Amino acid sequence: MTPQLTTSADLMSPLHLFLQADVVVKAVMIGLLLASIWTWAIIFTHSIRLKKINRQTEGFEKDFWAASDIDAFHSRRGGESLPIAVVMSAALDEWRRSTKGVVVDRAGTRERLASRMNAAVATELDRLSDRLNILATVGSVAPFVGLFGTVWGIMRSFTAIAGANNTSLAVVAPGIAEALFATAIGLFAAIPAVIAYNRLTHGLDRLEARLGRFADRFHATLSRELEVEVASGH
């Protein structure tokens, strides 16, 4: 009795199901496994990077609002690759360009400041969301690719049944098991991709909101400074 159970378990093992599968089903399985590996690589790299950026952004923002001299702070930390540092640098660059003339257009300066900071936020979010579309693609396509492998495997099983003139479960079960294994791999690739895509997108949305709040607050600060500049020198 024990050898029979062991043999049945071996026949249903993932390795045996893969080795006994049709070449088309094997190609589907290999493709889905590679997609799963790629998906997990993206999940780990983006999760770690986003967590690091959030932690560093919190410290940067705290130091920025505590600084007494914005120009000195920018000279010291403006070259960092943090999204919030890029937004700050874009705002100060536009501020210097717009206020270096004899006559300062206050309304135009405010509009250009808002435009530059919004563009910087959008650019940084685009950079951080790079390759997330792969997760969405794998999450939406992988189940159908696995289903294709399943349909192909079942068709092959029915063809074998017709050729053998035998409809016993012993003849049908292995081929159907191989076919269903393709769907299982497809779901194995798709489910983590969908969950990770939603979580990472939510994280990026929160970062975007934080950068937007920083941009609005910095814009208000520069607007007040603009009033002082105009009142004192122009």
Score class of each variant (00 low, 15 high):
residue 1 M to P: 01
residue 2 T to P: 00
residue 5 L to S: 04
residue 7 T to C: 00
residue 15 L to E: 06
residue 16 H to N: 14
residue 25 V to P: 03
residue 25 V to A: 13
residue 32 L to Q: 05
residue 33 L to Y: 07
residue 33 L to S: 12
residue 47 S to Y: 06
residue 47 S to C: 05
residue 50 L to S: 10
residue 55 R to P: 03
residue 60 F to C: 08
residue 62 K to I: 06
residue 63 D to P: 00
residue 79 G to M: 03
residue 81 S to K: 13
residue 85 A to D: 04
residue 86 V to C: 02
residue 89 S to K: 05
residue 95 W to Y: 11
residue 98 S to E: 10
residue 104 V to D: 03
residue 110 R to F: 01
residue 112 R to V: 01
residue 115 S to L: 08
residue 124 E to N: 14
residue 126 D to N: 12
residue 131 R to G: 01
residue 131 R to F: 12
residue 133 N to Y: 03
residue 133 N to G: 15
residue 135 L to S: 04
residue 138 V to F: 02
residue 142 A to Y: 01
residue 149 G to K: 11
residue 155 M to T: 03
residue 156 R to E: 14
residue 158 F to S: 07
residue 165 N to E: 14
residue 171 V to M: 15
residue 174 P to M: 08
residue 174 P to W: 08
residue 178 E to C: 09
residue 179 A to R: 12
residue 182 A to T: 08
residue 185 I to K: 03
residue 192 P to M: 13
residue 192 P to R: 13
residue 195 I to Y: 11
residue 199 R to F: 15
residue 200 L to G: 14
residue 200 L to C: 13
residue 211 L to R: 04
residue 212 G to H: 03
residue 214 F to S: 05
residue 215 A to Q: 08
residue 217 R to L: 09
residue 218 F to L: 15
residue 221 T to W: 04
residue 222 L to Q: 08
residue 226 L to K: 11
